[in-house]
Design a protein around this nucleic acid. Structure first.
Lengths: 222, 222
DNA sequence: GATACCATCTTGGGATACCAAACTGGTATC
DNA sequence: GATACCAGTTTGGTATCCCAAGATGGTATC
């Protein structure tokens, strides 16, 4: 694999895991030293990450994309559009075995699994459901949206109840798809998305001060 | 503006205007000579265009993205999801003056306007309608989808009737938005999208042979 | 005549050197 | 004391050089 790929993947991981703070400034020379490549692959990686909107230009400089509260509401709206359509198509097209595979994804998450695991599966679930639609554009749109939400979801302090609640919604959704109840499934996912949005916004708004103190740029208002 | 920007914009224009053929191989050194910059900005521009999926890797080489027939059907599905939601939100949120502005966009296109003009307005219309939703993600999704369709739309031989037909559908849609009839408007745009898809696929399938002869890679099947 | 192999050339990947613009800190002047 | 200005430093933008891998074409061998 090329160095550019490696740098891209590593920096991406650092951003998503909040190892580098949202809003933090990045210099090409620091990254050069950090990853041991020269500026050429570093810049290529930055350009790619810019396209994924994980990194942004601030004048002439680079910065890690801040978390924008206003974006979370808009993203929920977008997800409703895309995911409800994906779910409807999934009801028409998904095979039993493919649906079962997604169910197993949920089951694989033990109650005492580490937080990383829950976070990852919570993201992957939506992408995998989108994949049941068979439409590449819907899949990519969902994957992109979940990436954008990833850091906010990580910051959300999740109680065991709210986690169980979300998982119950996931299982309900899969059941509806399996029974090919398109309208109900679409409605279920829309409600789930709105639930998530509300929990995220409440949580971030509450913790905004302390997150700022950790150097995280949480900007805008819901 | 930086050279990278210039090269990016120029090459993008060349691709969208079919000045370079879909599927054509691009070498960094050729672009270097063509645009008068060095390889560094050329490569940065290519990476950006790759992110927009106008350019693609073919092994280690670069190529102009081919036109894929299978993509057109999937894109129509995606557009239905995104644009119908955008239109519904537009019915809730768009101001009269904003709707009027989009109407003027259509009116500005004289019957004897050059083909480029019709093509551009036909694309912009959908983006501007999406803009009425006020949701950045929906706007970007529509803009991206229209970009992906741009070259296929250009290749379509359009009769004056089919052009008038499309324009009538556009006007109908705006009227429905103005009257805040969300369901009807959403249905109208879905029908319009399906009409467009059918016309595109028919046209491309028919002309496939001659387009191939011009060196255009039209791959896959609908 | 076909095929396997080798020299050569092309091409993208990466490293580095240089430049210009922006920022920083300090100083001198009002 | 405030402000305007200047030198030094940092940083991204660009050009260019080197390298390894892959493509090419020609030749020798069977």
């Amino acid at each position: 694999m090329s160095q550019m790929q490696q740098i891209h993947d590593q920096l991406r991981e650092m951003i998503l895991s909040l190892e580098v703070a949202p809003g933090e400034r990045l210099t090409e020379r620091w990254l050069e030293g950090r990853f041991g490549g020269s500026r050429t692959p570093v810049r290529a990686a930055l350009v790619r990450l810019e396209a994924e909107e994980l990194v942004r230009r601030d004048g002439r400089n680079w910065m890690v994309a801040p978390i924008e509260l206003g974006e979370i509401a808009a993203l929920a709206e977008f997800r409703e559009a895309v995911e409800s359509s994906a779910v409807r198509l999934a009801c028409e097209r998904a095979s039993e075995v493919d649906i079962d595979a997604v169910t197993e994804l949920l089951d694989a998450c033990e109650p005492d699994a580490p937080r990383e695991e829950w976070h990852r599966v919570g993201t992957d679930f939506h992408v995998e459901v989108a994949r049941l639609s068979g439409n590449e554009f819907l899949i990519k749109a969902v994957a992109g949206a979940m990436t954008r939400l990833s850091r906010a979801r990580w910051l959300e302090l999740r109680t065991e109840q709210s986690r169980d609640h979300a998982w119950a919604e996931h299982r309900l959704l899969l059941d509806l798809i399996r029974r090919r109840e398109a309208d109900a499934a679409a409605q279920a996912i829309c409600e789930h998305i709105r639930d998530t949005r509300d929990r995220l916004l409440t949580s971030l708004e509450e913790d905004r001060r302390s997150l700022r103190a950790r150097g995280f740029a949480i900007v805008g208002k819901a």
